[in-house]
Design a protein around this nucleic acid. Structure first.
Lengths: 349, 349
DNA sequence: TTGTATGCGTTATCAA
DNA sequence: TTGATAACGCATACAA
């Protein structure tokens, strides 16, 4: 029953012009008369003609498609994608659409071929990498892409040597702002829950900001207050449990992600500690849920809309062989209830 | 600097075979000798050869790509995508990958051309529609797709006349289970917050399940307890506020989505009502946050992994012109803290 | 089992 | 401003 797809030749015949003219007219070329253009468009509408993008992509250099490769950070199968990426993906889809790019999305596959298929098989003009996993895992892939000359951008991971372009938040500044806020509300024994190893540059930078704020305030850095944790809620629970089990005194927790902070608050609650009266908590990301938690979570906001623009503009520049600059977006402290103090007052300062 | 992409001809030359044999060998055709296959694969690896998918797609019938079109249900620009779709999208990406499909994702565009570009321009073999907006808006598009014979599936919207295939949850059963549970914990004045109009079949079905449970229990249906609301948190807040402002007594709220329920709980809390002591709350979806709220939200779980399989298997069948059946996934009641176990006091001002 | 020849539907390069 | 013609890189019918 499926009707035969009309081709540009059919349009040409109906409009009484050559196929070349059809192609030009549909591409809004200025080299075609208004009259011809009108007739072509009319014929195209009449036959419901749509360009076969595959033929176009085969013939032309750019294929106007971006690939987004997402690593499965969360191990539970329930929700393979880090919720922080939802608004980022949304913004990417929106902005990419505005720029005329199609967006191909894929989850990290275990296969060796993962990623190499994308650019080099001409599925996409460039690749955006999203994920917080240890990026050492990808070095092989990154080198491959570099060798064949496929453009790619990474979100978040600062100082990745092989990357021509990295877009991320200024995590050090974010860590500093969070810790500074905790100091401002009078906390001194501030625990850090998260990764601090160089393999996870974005989290390590948050930790560095934390250290800078403490040092600046004359508060000694106590490694007993540093809890290793990745990014999921359960890790946050485990982290706080460990602190309490080891009888390490603390009056605040800065978590490297909101998910960790949610877990931390849950654990504190279970142990009978009140947030923020007994312990203040700050997270990182500003997930949409933060305002619905009780207490509502004070956190560091990452601007995902600006991030999407920077990622796509940067990747576009790489694709077009234009110069690019790494960008660090400024994060923002969002004060809610989980730290105590008077939110209104603090915000005013 | 970008090196020239090798083609199958280069491989053929290096392997000492014809281009046809290369094509066959890479497609795992049984019509090629082990020896030739080995030489081809070796040459391909040596030259880092990757098929140009565009050429392949131009030549062959199937293009092994699915398009997912997401409507922007939430109007706030902060987060254009309904969070319920995150695990669904994750599962779709995972399963599609396993089945050898690429996945193209796009947000609803205002343009008339929205959607028609996908199948008919041969970007994808079929389209998956995700969204809770009034689907009347799409009738024009749906008819277009049907006329040109492009396969498409919708999530959630039962009884869409023009659809050849609909996959969704059994919303009526879900609504029934939720309401039944509220009755079981002793509630009688149960408000319904959500859409009940036929334009939103999935929500209307949840409302129908609600009515069935009430009727079955001999509880009269009171239209004063029915609050019109779409799906966002703010709508949940507004809904509960309206009930309270109008002095309508109620001891429970069944919300058509978890987002609504989160708003409802927030509003109740602000008004000094305790959940679940004064008012029980049940949501729908089982967002990942439900277990982190306080009180943790009792809700109806939709199985997104099974949904993704059903959507993709169904769409595959449509693509291959095989017979298909609409599917209603069984939802599941997830009991947490927001309903309490004991009959509470009636909340009236 | 292999190879030859052809075509998929465009865009790009010419010449008119 | 237009049109004929040649790619683009692969898959397939057909011949060997």
């Amino acid at each position: 029953m499926k009707q035969q797809r009309p081709t540009s030749l059919d349009i040409a015949a109906l409009a009484g012009v050559s196929q070349t003219t059809v192609s030009r007219a549909l591409a809004q070329s200025p080299l075609v008369s208004e009259d011809a253009k009108r007739r072509v468009l009319e014929a195209a509408r009449a036959l419901r003609y749509k360009v076969d993008v595959n033929a176009r992509k085969l013939r032309s250099k750019k294929i106007h498609t971006l690939a987004v490769l997402i690593s499965e950070d969360l191990d539970n199968s329930e929700n393979p994608i880090n919720p922080f990426f939802l608004p980022l993906i949304g913004s990417i889809l929106k902005y990419a659409g505005q720029q005329g790019y199609d967006v191909l999305i894929s989850l990290q596959q275990k296969s060796d071929e993962w990623g190499t298929d994308y650019g080099f098989s001409r599925r996409a003009d460039g690749i955006i990498f999203l994920g917080c996993k240890d990026f050492q895992v990808y070095t092989h892939l990154f080198e491959y892409l570099n060798e064949v000359g496929d453009p790619w951008v990474v979100w978040g991971v600062n100082r990745l040597d092989c990357a021509r372009l990295v877009i991320g938040s200024d995590n050090e500044a974010g860590g500093y702002m969070a810790t500074r806020h905790l100091l401002d509300v009078g906390r001194r024994r501030i625990a850090f829950v998260g990764k601090h190893q160089p393999e996870h540059p974005e989290f390590r930078d948050r930790y560095r900001g934390y250290c800078r704020a403490l040092t600046e305030a004359g508060v000694p850095i106590d490694d007993a207050l540093r809890v290793d944790a990745f990014l999921a809620r359960e890790d946050g629970v485990a982290g706080v449990d460990r602190l309490l089990d080891n009888n390490i005194p603390f009056d605040a927790v800065f978590c490297a992600t909101d998910l960790l902070a949610m877990g931390a608050m849950q654990a504190l609650h279970r142990r009978g500690l009140h947030v923020p009266n007994d312990v203040s908590v700050v997270g990182f990301d500003d997930l949409w849920v933060c305002s619905s938690l009780s207490p509502a979570l004070t956190t560091i906001r990452q601007d995902t809309e600006a991030a999407a623009r920077a990622l796509i503009d940067g990747l576009s520049a790489l694709i077009d062989d234009e110069p690019v600059l790494d960008t660090q977006m400024a994060p923002k402290l969002v004060i809610r209830e989980s730290c105590g103090g008077l939110p209104g007052l603090m915000a005013a300062q």
